[in-house]
Amino acid sequence: MRLSLNSRLSAFSALLPALLVMLVVYVGATSWTVWMSLTNSRMLPNNNFVGLRQYEMLLGNDRWITSVHNIVIYGVLLVSLALVVGFLLAVAIDQRVRAEDTIRSIYLYPYSMSFIVTGLVWQWLLNPTLGIQHVLRSWGFEGATFDWIVRPETAIYCLVIAGVWQASGLVMAIMLAGLRGVDEEIWKAARVDGLPKWRVYVSIIVPMMGASFATAAVLLSTGVVRLYDLSVSMTNGGPGIASEVPAKFVMDHLFERANIGLATAAATTMLITVIAVVAPYLYWRARKGGMR
């Protein structure tokens, strides 16, 4: 069916604002960022092309290397732990417990909090002189030590703890929806087959929930890439530079250290990394879709 010129025009004009935003904000800003990373801009942007010099400096920058190192640790641990904890919470709720709605709300509650608040709360909890360690010692466990947040080699794991605490509820909600989608008769068949419950979960249910795991993992990963506010509010990148992350590196260099060239080089590096991870996946998805 051929659409009339009039209706094609109105369709186009309806799409135009979104298209403009797409082009100007996303494509435009991204291209400008990439261009800036090839200049020697400091506080103000300029157009002095210097090739890949900013990238060379970036790779020699200790703080950047630490940031990348941290984001890998955080990403791997957060995604895997949040998936495991969220799934276990969902399984626990799926046992037809009482007051399910209330418990579900409680589990999901942390997700409604901003990272700033989450970070502050956990900063207090993990602070050796205020939080958990202090409470344990005041109860008489004199030797109790939980000072990860003040030790450079463990500070990043504190971010992981807070992140998992915040994200597990969301993962639980996704997983619970997946579990509720499992056909009741599969459970019956498994009982007749004499399979223990844990075995049903491990061998039958989890493999069935690939889509739920993928959805949760993608949502968690986007959170990993833009990790910024948790680091700011919890440790402010410290002790020293021990819990710096890439997004914070970009922000600090952009606004505080007045080094637009280096900041945009870091931002571009992040973009390339994400594309390198996502592109093969999208390609695989597209091929799989095309084959059906």
């Binding site: 008769e185 599969i186 068949a189 498994a190 004499g194 399979l195 061998s203 039958i204």
Partner: peptide
């Protein structure tokens, strides 16, 4: 008694096959 100890086997309306297992494994898993 538990279903597995009753000496019964059952076939369901929705088939209730284990979706990610091969036919062979569906039959042999129990």
């Amino acid at each position: 008694a538990e279903p597995k100890d009753r000496g019964i086997a059952m076939v369901f309306q929705s088939y209730a096959l284990y979706p990610r297992m091969s036919v062979r494994r569906n039959m042999s898993f129990g």
